[in-house]
Write a protein that binds this DNA or RNA. Structure first.
Lengths: 250, 250
DNA sequence: ATCCATTTGTACGTATGTATT
DNA sequence: AAATACATACGTACAAATGGA
């Protein structure tokens, strides 16, 4: 009876083993940004696989944003500092193939941006307050000149808040989702009637948010930021989805 | 003066062009899950590239979770339904290389889970309430038998809430971050003293949250869920990071 | 500034194990 | 049970690109 309990095996591709090993080295800090990998020929010797296998592994690592290789570079592939590019890519894919609605995206932003403001109100430094101030000034300066500069300043403000929150995950996710949202409706916003009025209203709202952050009133900052974002985007959100967004407004 | 404004060109690899085309087809719905790609030999003919180039493209697409290819499959690579696996992978990488702290992860979960409860309190159906009820029952049943079953039931509850929120982005992100957090501290929780007391407390908290969701009191459900998660994880979070988590508690 | 050795990008042929018919 | 079509992996070859002499 009994006998050893065997487990089902899954064949694991040769290139996967290579990816795992290099990934492990990067994630444990054995390989740090700036380090160069051995050349493809050296790697095929070290792993005792063919060049194609090495290259497939490198392509996967490159797709994950861990390394970059350039033709002719005698130093081999370069280990890159982490960027949320891969995260961005998969979230964008999610938004496209899984039919993420604008309402869901905006709701997500409202949630994370409010949390960032809540935290920033407690943790912000003077320098960070100055950054937010500068961003709003830039919004004011750009209000007349066009939507692009205004949007850039708006992004700078929200990014400053996100950084001040001290939560890198919130910062990265807000950044990713914001760019997806802007990408979805940039043209609609640019074509909106009464752009000037919208910009002025947005500036006023941002000033109120900043005042709350400066005063250290996190809950107020959070509530105002949700309202600001709701007001700014609600017209582009299909009516049936608006109820969910209003549910986020306290 | 003037003249045409030329833009810097970046050489784009052959395999990248293939990835772009197939990715586009998947994201626009031209290729839907279950569809088979042509065989590698057909692809090399269609794109007029070599086999290696096709394979590197397929490796990238596979790394992004869009397709899967198996040896010997007489059909080509299979187009997969979207899974957050790639998202999970990049977030895990982020957590490891960028030293994402447990405090940041828990803060993120508190934020998203609270938002999910806020929305679920408004949008939940009777069937979803029943699922949450069943999950809490499972938690009760598992409280004596061990941590694993208890944790699974706990996950089921939070997942039911996330689904009831109607926001797929919230659902997926909570799922991803939850598994990362659990992976980080599963052993610590399993080794905690007075496990039974912690489980009983957690069950009581979950019941309160569910009551609020059932009553349609979103803000209360959100506040309780934040508190529940804070209580459950705070002992594992380094003291300096706890202030930020408390800032999220209203 | 030019040339050169090396490396990457790409191509092609082949062998082998596997899944489906 | 055999035949077929496929993916995996290997090896070689050449062009383009890079960094350093």
């Amino acid at each position: 009876m009994g006998g050893p309990r065997f487990e089902p095996v899954r064949t694991v591709r040769a290139y996967e083993r290579i990816v795992e090993q290099i990934e492990e080295a990067v994630e444990t800090g054995t390989l740090t940004p700036g380090h160069r990998l051995p050349s493809e020929r050296d790697l095929m010797a070290q792993f005792s696989v063919s060049r194609s296998t090495v290259r497939e592994a490198l392509r996967v690592l490159q797709a994950r944003g861990l390394v970059r290789s350039r033709p002719g570079d005698p130093n081999g592939a370069e280990v890159l500092p982490f960027t949320p590019a891969a995260l961005h890519k998969s979230m964008t894919t999610l938004a496209r193939v899984d039919q993420l609605s604008l309402g869901e995206l905006v709701g997500f932003r409202m949630t994370l941006d409010a949390a960032a403001n809540l935290l920033a109100a407690r943790l912000r430094t003077e320098a960070q307050l100055a950054e937010m101030d500068a961003a709003i000034s830039a919004m004011r300066a750009a209000a007349g000149t066009g939507y692009d500069a205004f949007s850039a300043a708006d992004v700078a403000f929200h990014d400053a808040v996100a950084r001040a929150s001290g939560n890198k995950l919130i910062q990265i996710c807000t950044d990713v989702v914001r760019s997806i949202v802007l990408n979805l409706i940039a043209e609609k916003i640019a074509a909106a009637p009464d752009q000037d009025g919208l910009m002025r209203q947005s500036i006023r709202h941002h000033e109120e948010v900043l005042a709350a952050v400066r005063a250290g009133d996190g809950p107020l900052a959070a509530r105002l930021s949700r309202q600001t974002m709701y007001d700014y985007y609600v017209t582009y959100v299909p009516a049936p989805e608006r109820a969910a967004l209003r549910a986020l407004l306290d």
